[in-house]
Design a protein around this nucleic acid. Sequence first.
DNA 1: GCCCAGGAGCCCG
DNA 2: CGGGCTCATGGG
Length: 241
Amino acid sequence: MLYILKTFTLLMLKKIYEHLLKEFGHQGWWPVTPSGSCRGDNLEPIYGLRARIEKQKLEIIFGAILTQNTSWKNVEKSIIELNKNNLFDIGKILKIKHDELAILIKSSGYYNQKAKKLKNMCVFLKKYPIKHLEKMELAKARELLLNVNGIGPETADSILLYAFDKPIFVVDAYTKRFLARLGLIKPDAGYEEVQALFMKELPKDTELFKEYHALIVEVAKRACKKNQKCDLCALKRLCRN
DNA sequence: GCCCAGGAGCCCG
DNA sequence: CGGGCTCATGGG
């Protein structure tokens, strides 16, 4: 019985992924600013790049914090402001005054909290440099990140997956709503429970996890909204709603 | 005006 | 442990 359920879930997850990929195409998350942008006018994050240099990884880390309960469009504006001031730099964030930083990220909302969170993160990254965290065992790096004030499970996992290329699945409000409507989880399922659903079934493939999460965000924005638009949804037939 | 957006911390029973 | 509150801007 257990075996049958497990197989069913795996088949569903694969089918969902294939449908979403066909519908929306490759998403190329996480958006980052092209490297060498200091002198050019490329100050804006774009999709489909690989975050190779440290500055780009820092951009993903900051972006993950800034986008907490906030639309990416608002975060983009803040990233451009930070780029203009060359602030994807741990030392400079630690040095800048709180109020000055808060103004630059104002468009992301919660700017006082988030200014503090960026500074907390930089204190942490000074003690544990990105290069060390990347080599660290996944569970250990995750635990350390979760101990930073302002970093919860989703932000930690976004950083691990998109900045450090660690094979961990990111769960957000979209993921829960989407899976609950499909009937694969209970509406009140906890974070780790939902994460385990993906990670026990699917191969631990970093690129697959990156793409899958991005595709869920896309379908949740377009069709699987709070007020669902099932007539627009490619997964209508697989869904309980 | 209202609702919502790629959450997390804190407080409280 | 779980629910309620707070943080805040910008777009629909």
